[in-house]
């Protein structure tokens, strides 16, 4: 369960941004890649635990899931994989090429109030 330490990093990172801007955080927007190795439900539960008792208590995580995007060498197009259990192009069934998106865990925005 590494989501606890990941939730703690998110709290630290957001807190730092909030202090810089002298604002209070209501919500954190995250992009969660399907290949990040992070489980959404575990992260949500961990966030609630870790943020309790901090200035972020009661704030929400707004998670956008990013599918794995590969480059298909046959179609010569980026393609989103419907599942990470099968790395083949959903359009032409050839083996997927390089992963171009979907490994990340990013804080993309903060909802704040002064």
């Amino acid at each position: 369960m590494h989501e606890l330490s990941i939730a703690a990093s998110i709290v630290d990172l957001a807190q730092e941004e909030a202090e810089k801007r002298a604002v209070r955080i209501v919500a954190i927007h995250l992009t969660l890649g399907a290949l990040s190795g992070v489980v959404r439900e575990a992260l949500e539960g961990s966030y609630e635990m870790v943020s309790a008792g901090t200035k972020l208590e009661g704030s929400r995580l707004v998670i956008r899931e990013q599918p794995v995007r590969v480059y298909c060498p046959v179609c010569r197009e980026p393609r989103d994989l419907p599942s990470i259990q099968l790395f083949v192009c959903p359009a032409c069934n050839s083996p997927a090429g390089e992963v171009i998106d979907g490994r990340e865990l990013l804080v993309t925005a903060l909802e704040v109030e002064s």
Binding site: S9, E104, L110
Partner: peptide, 18 residues
Amino acid sequence: MKSEPRIVEVRQNVFRQN
């Protein structure tokens, strides 16, 4: 008096330190 929440764009990799 409370203002309406507003969105601040940031772009931070959570795994940055590692």
